[in-house]
Design a binder for these strands. Structure first.
Lengths: 177, 177
DNA sequence: TTACCACCTGGGAATAACTACCAACTAAAA
DNA sequence: TTTTAGTTGGTAGTTATTCCCAGGTGGTAA
């Protein structure tokens, strides 16, 4: 109880259905148009069980929308991440960074300036303590990335989530003209 | 005590000096030639405080070795990682992967087949529980990647560390010719 | 139902971050 | 000093992703 657990198949099925149903409303709420491309991409993403890459989603969506472009897929996935409707599993994906310190430690990344700092996190090292297996998997290592906003970036007034705000469609009220 | 802690400057200084001093012996032990390029790269890496990218290390090494090639820098850094003399901070760097499941969860990556699985890790979620700050940093999120070898890959006899073994220079003993 | 327009899309070109290849070079064993 | 496996540098890919912009379209207001 309280230990690591894989998420069940059944849970996933219900979760996806709910998310798909709410998608249109969510877009409208955010001032985004509900285009066939966006719907196709969120569906492909929600029905995927393999954490697909952008090009894999592109290939799947193309079965229904042969004219969709790869650019649209990349752009839309990025938007979904900004909206909080998807997660990018790759961390620090803008090129590998190297660390000469090979003692056990973890990393703190400032989402503003992309600087990386070393940190010791004994709790993290104990995370999967005295386990060799996790289900059918042989445990090798456990990596932790703590995302923060450094003092410098906070003062510069960077948005605190690392998510760029999108422009809202102007609400056409009785005010003007 | 036992909580998150940044590694001290002083510690780093001594650590680097020791690692630099041991480097030659380590290479010989591994059957690797001690070339000026390798020495320059390990020095640049050990003296770096910023988790540099390969091209940054290239730029720094070039100040002393104007003829070194970027290819050598990439190759050498990769070797250092294989030898365990460096760490690559970027996880899953072969392209972003997307996840439609935005509930709090973490990822298990099989280093053999690169498949990604979702996992709930309440311990990880509690890791930085009831903290808003970590030193001068504002905490945003804490991401965990558990690296494993899945049953399938284990049976296929994949090397269990994700590190390719290097060919040893044959020990020229009295045996032949 | 129509008109409008800010938003959205597709396609090609550009970029960044590697990676492969191979001929020339060199560390180090003998 | 000789030999040679191991190493390097330069060039030419490749892969993943982003930029740009002309043309298309969802959604609001009339």
């Amino acid at each position: 109880m309280g230990g690591p657990a894989f998420l069940s198949k059944q849970w996933h099925v219900r979760y996806r259905a709910q998310r798909a149903a709410e998608f249109g409303a969510y877009c409208r709420e955010q001032g985004l148009a509900v285009t066939p491309q966006r719907v196709a991409i969120i569906r492909a993403l929600l029905s995927a069980e393999d954490h697909p890459r952008a090009d894999q989603i592109y290939a799947r969506v193309r079965r229904q929308h042969p004219h969709i472009s790869l650019t649209t897929v990349y752009r839309t996935l990025e938007q979904f991440c900004e909206m909080g409707q998807a997660r990018k599993v790759t961390l620090l994906h803008e090129g590998a960074r190297y660390d000469g310190n090979i003692t056990p430690h973890h990393h703190v990344l400032c989402v503003g300036c992309q600087r990386v700092f070393d940190i010791a996190l004994p709790e993290a090292d104990r995370l999967l303590h005295d386990r060799e297996r996790l289900g059918e998997f042989v445990l090798l290592r456990c990596l932790v990335e703590v995302q923060v906003l450094c003092g410098q970036c906070r003062r510069k007034g960077q948005n605190s989530t690392g998510v760029r705000p999108r422009r809202q469609r102007p609400v056409q009220s009785a005010a003007q003209s």
